[in-house]
């Protein structure tokens, strides 16, 4: 007779039975993405209840398509943030890739798909340059990328003189405007990129190295991880994804606007933070960051659907973002209080 069968389990070892609501909160709080998912569900539910125009096929398509551009930049920025870095030139890289694409396709008459490929390479190259300067000169990424944003933004103006390039070939406008079974193509591109990057981050040694470097770069170096190479690779990835967003936006607008990317700097950082990515590095995931971008996208949508005054829009959206960020912390505090 085994000991297990003769000795009954101590009552104290049984997990306490929680009321259903508290159990749900407990499960969400136990999941790294619990806070952002809960906030998303609440905001989504409230939007459905408050606006008859929110839960329509057309509106969902709008949200999905708008999310695609900012979401791509958010993926790259979140990887950098997990690494303990920031790139404030991602918007400028996206804008530069867009106008260079326009120049190649329209002014130089290059094949649109070849132009697209070259722009993606250029975006990756810009990111790699950022990474190389940061690692080789041992500069702070925040400071360096502020300067590089000026360089890429200035190159954009030099190339365009501030004037949009029109006449983008219809071959590639499908990438920005098209639908596949009712789903916007840019959104599908976002999902594919997110799946690839999430796989790398969560299922490969490179991903583990990124978390290790973000947690403690010195310890990572002592373990033999090629810290600088991984940092440069992450910057290249962020540049590549920003360029992809820029090219998709050109395909969406049908013109290469010099202003593309102007609003892609702070939004992705806010989205990543809402999605649980720590600004200090080592914590979070691209999936959470994109969920944060979804929250921001819904807030921007409902602000317009509700007809909120343009002068109050920033106050309202900022307030909701603060509430969303606070939700996770409040839920954890609630559980911890009960545990004591």
């Amino acid at each position: 007779m085994s000991l297990e069968t003769t000795v009954p389990a101590a009552p104290s070892q049984q997990p306490p039975k929680l009321p259903p609501l508290k159990a749900l909160v407990s499960r969400l709080a136990g999941n790294p993405l619990g806070g952002v998912i809960a906030a998303l569900v609440i905001i989504f539910g409230a939007s459905c209840a408050l606006s008859p125009h929110f839960l329509t096929t057309f509106n969902m398509m709008i949200i999905a398509r708008a999310l695609a551009f900012i979401g791509l930049v958010t993926i790259g920025q979140s990887v950098l943030m997990i690494l303990g870095e920031l790139d404030l030139s991602v918007g400028a890289i996206g804008g530069l890739a867009g106008v260079v694409g326009g120049i190649l396709m329209v002014q130089l008459g290059l094949n649109p798909w070849l132009s697209l490929g070259l722009c993606l390479l250029m975006g990756g190259g810009c990111g790699l340059l950022n990474g190389a300067l940061i690692t080789q000169l041992r500069l702070h990424s925040l400071v360096l990328t502020i300067g590089m944003a000026g360089v890429y933004g200035g190159a954009n103006l030099v190339a365009t003189k501030g004037v949009a390039i029109t006449g983008v070939p219809r071959d590639i406008t499908f990438l920005g405007r098209g639908l596949v079974m009712g789903v916007p193509v840019p959104f599908l591109v976002l999902l594919v990129c997110l799946a690839i990057v999430a796989f790398i981050m969560l299922r490969t040694p490179v991903g583990r190295y990124i978390y290790a470097i973000g947690s403690n770069p010195d310890a990572a170096r002592m373990l033999g991880i090629r810290v600088n190479a991984i940092r440069m690779g992450a910057f290249a990835l962020a540049g590549f994804l920003s360029a992809l967003a820029g090219i998709l936006m050109v395909a969406r607008l049908g013109t290469a606007q010099p202003s593309i990317g102007d609003t892609w700097v702070l939004g992705p950082i806010a989205a990543a933070v809402i999605g649980g990515v720590a600004t200090t590095g080592g914590i979070g995931s691209p999936i959470g960051a994109v969920l944060g971008a979804v929250i921001i996208g819904i807030i921007e949508d409902i602000i317009v659907l509700f007809g909120i005054s343009p002068y109050w829009q920033s106050v309202v959206s900022g307030g909701i973002v603060v509430l969303a960020i606070s939700f996770d912390a409040l839920a954890r505090r609630y559980l911890n209080r009960d545990a004591v």
């Binding site: 551009f69 607008l253 606007q257 202003s259 102007d262 609003t263 343009p310 829009q313």
Partner: peptide
């Protein structure tokens, strides 16, 4: 009104 004069 858009918060910035940006086409997108």
């Amino acid at each position: 009104a858009p918060q910035t004069a940006d086409v997108s």
